[in-house]
């Protein structure tokens, strides 16, 4: 392992584990400012995690190990995803490979764990949220896989490190397929992070909840796992967006240097959409994500036509 790949590996693990709550903090702070509020500062998610970590969990009566295990599985899946998604070209393989499809699998696994746990608690709102989540995930996963397929085609590999290298430099400006893939991936970000117009993370209306519903019953340390996992989910999809679909230079050091800027801009973009957009009618959401998948498909066709 060269010193370069070692430092990338350290940044990736430390950044993913420790800095991901900061992404949520920055987004929340930007939202507060946009809404005319002062906000609690970008470090607030850390304070919340500390508070939750110190509290004991409360088990729901009549639940089994399925419910117990879910937060840990979710956190573990997201931890693996952090190892999987390289933050720059020179990232070493950290034992989990770097294949794009594995990422789709890990995201699906964490979703599955939460939904099965919702079944275990048999709380009405948890089940309702879970069923909505699963319905949407059919479309979200299609859009995710197709948009990554666009990038993979352009780069000529499904290895994410290779994808980042293959899309670096001038590719973004000259390949229309990548732009179409980017549009689709933007919708995936919104859906995977549970933000508007798909879901409203600030809502307290139990009837409208999608992602918040299934986690209502968790308390204390379990809730801390889930909140960290949500932050890690932000990290994974935003890093991918920044290093695949946003302009990024060739060369590991340059990519690393530019990453914080891209992530910051993406967080602010999330805050802006969440402030000025209302939540969609729930039955229109699959259509929106479906359009995303169709756009990604169009990207694939464009690329095939272009190279034929």
């Amino acid at each position: 392992m060269t010193s370069q790949s070692a430092s990338v590996a350290v940044t990736q693990i430390a950044g993913g584990l420790a800095l991901s709550p900061l992404l949520i903090g920055v987004t929340q702070q930007a939202k507060a400012r946009l809404q005319g509020r002062r906000g609690a500062g970008p470090l607030q998610p850390y304070r919340e995690l500390r508070r939750l970590w110190g509290k004991s969990g409360v088990d729901v009566e009549g639940t089994t190990f399925v419910y117990r295990l879910a937060p840990v599985i979710v956190a573990a899946a997201m931890g693996a995803a952090i190892l999987l998604v390289p933050i720059a070209t020179g990232a070493p393989r950290l034992g989990v490979g770097q294949d794009a499809l594995v990422l789709a699998g890990l995201l699906a696994l964490s979703r599955l764990a939460v939904c099965i746990a919702a079944w275990d608690t048999s709380n009405g709102f948890a089940l309702q949220g879970a069923s909505r989540d699963l319905t949407l995930s059919v479309f979200v996963e299609a859009a995710l896989v197709l948009s990554l397929a666009v990038a993979a085609l352009v780069a000529g590999t499904t290895d994410l490190s290779g994808v980042i290298a293959g899309t670096a430099g001038g590719h973004l400006w000259t390949t229309p397929a990548l732009a179409l893939g980017g549009v689709a991936f933007a919708l995936v970000i919104v859906a995977e992070t549970g933000r508007q117009p798909v879901d409203n993370p600030d809502t307290h209306l139990e009837l409208t909840m999608i992602y918040e519903g299934p986690v209502l019953e968790y308390a204390g340390r379990d809730q801390a796992y889930l909140q960290w996992a949500l932050a890690a989910r932000h990290w994974v999809v935003l890093v991918l967006a920044a290093q695949v679909f946003l302009p990024h230079p060739v060369g590991t050091w340059w990519q690393l240097a530019l990453l914080p800027v891209s992530l910051g801009l993406l967080c602010i973009a999330l805050a802006v959409t969440e402030t000025v957009l209302a939540k969609m009618r729930i039955l229109l959401v699959p259509r929106l994500i479906g359009v995303g998948a169709a756009v990604a498909l169009l990207g694939i066709v464009t690329w095939l036509v272009e190279t034929a």
Binding site: R37, G39, Q44, H204
Partner: peptide, 22 residues
């Protein structure tokens, strides 16, 4: 929680479940 008072700046928040609450 509106801009006028903004209790979020003290880290105060209203949560949806008694299990989440202090």
């Amino acid at each position: 929680s509106s801009p006028v008072v903004d209790m979020a700046r003290y880290g105060l928040g209203i949560v949806a479940s008694p299990r989440h609450a202090d």
